[in-house]
Write a protein that binds this DNA or RNA. Structure first.
Lengths: 231, 231
DNA sequence: CGCTGGATTGAGGCGGTTCAATTCGCGTGG
DNA sequence: CCACGCGAATTGAACCGCCTCAATCCAGCG
């Protein structure tokens, strides 16, 4: 039943079934998507879709890590989100994407043509409602992040970031940070040096330990939640 | 049929026609809403709906000013948006509102029971698409504001705020600020004193003039756009 | 006229930025 | 296998913008 092969753009019923089993428990509204998607792989650093580009498809992240980026006219970039495995990308959109998605590690996605999604939206009421919920949640997270960016200190931001990633931790409980410090800094609205210093403080206080540059072990979760402050 | 608790609530065909004439040019998807809404008035300072409350209805702002607020567990508040006349409130939501809406001046709204909107969503494809666009725009604005809160100085924030409100200006071209400085400061993620000082700087530089506490005249729009910096 | 809440103005301190210098991590090639 | 090199991360020091605290001003109103 499981077909986790890595391959270039292929379309097969078996693979969409795999997707269904992996992410879509039978009976959920997303069932209707099974069979509609095309599996694709993207290399680290490559663009999945571009801001301003035609939103002719949306994607589901099956494996790997991605950043959503908004460009500014002066050339600077704003990292808006790090979607997690299972998330939809580029659905909550108008006729064109208003942010771009870039792979920060090799990753696999399932691509759904917009036309098909639109059809399903019209046909399947519960599917439509489910996607509306997803979008609402996106907006909710955005509002939450506004609070963070408006009122939180460096410690609170970094602690919040780590705890947000904690549930993506791998087997031995270590948090994996696939993104660079630059990305983190940009995402949290602070300088890269401050991110580094703050991680150092958390390390020194015994809340976390660093197994490698991109792997962080939570030692004292309570302390980390304390550092995060109230949400 | 429906008799809500707060405010004067009347339902009349004439008024919905007025609504239709005022905001919904014939032929647009929102036409289907005509006749479905109930007109209501809310006094300044009153709550329209509460965060965490049952999202049994959504609203359309017909007249007056409103702020959207998110509460934090430590009691602090985050002003997330100042919707403009014609905007939908509380639609981009799950089963319960994840922010509250408060009137900052006496205002009139049209209330649409969620049940009716859901029905229309299922029946009318173009209406559904229109509401999806509205939601997408909300998310887009939220992302834009993240950029602002992450990378912008006090001057840039205030200038951005004024220019954002400039198209709501009244007849003689003056911008009306119905919200308090405290609200503005909270919304822009800065201290109230800094808002005041920054307005003073813009006034001294000749970009704006103050006709009264809540009325600001744009003198040099180019200078103001310069102060806003790149978006 | 005095009261009250919001807005303004001033002085001082702190957190985070900026700039600069190392150090670290890791792939590459000798 | 180790030396090398480059980009990323860390560390240090000085600076600056915004916040905080406190005093004062102002408008609206009984």
């Amino acid at each position: 039943m499981l077909q986790p092969a890595t391959g270039t753009l292929t379309k097969s019923h078996a693979q969409t079934v795999w997707l269904k089993d992996a992410f879509v428990p039978t009976g959920l509204p997303l069932d209707v998507l099974a069979g509609a998607g095309t599996r694709m792989t993207v290399k680290r650093g490559q663009e999945i879709f571009a801001e301003g580009g035609d939103a002719d498809a949306c994607y589901r992240l099956a494996e790997g890590s991605v950043r959503l980026v908004k460009l500014m006219v002066d050339g600077r970039r704003q990292v808006c989100a790090f979607p997690r495995v299972g998330d939809f990308l580029g659905f909550e959109t108008d006729d064109e994407h208003y942010f771009s998605a870039e792979a920060i590690s090799d990753c696999t996605l399932v691509r759904y043509p917009r036309r098909i999604v639109e059809t399903l939206l019209a046909e399947d009421k519960s599917f439509a409602r489910h996607l509306r919920k997803i979008t609402a949640r996106g907006l909710q997270e955005a509002y939450q992040r506004m609070v963070l960016l408006c009122h939180k200190s460096a410690q609170e931001r970094v602690a919040w970031f780590l705890l947000d990633l904690a549930d993506r931790a791998d087997a031995d409980g270590a948090i994996h940070l696939p993104m660079t410090r630059t990305d983190i800094a940009n995402y949290l609205g602070m300088a890269i040096e401050t991110v580094s210093r703050t991680l150092g403080q958390l390390k020194q206080s015994g809340a976390i330990a660093q197994k490698s540059l991109s792997r962080i072990q939570v030692i004292d979760r309570d302390a980390l939640e304390m550092a995060r402050g109230e949400v």
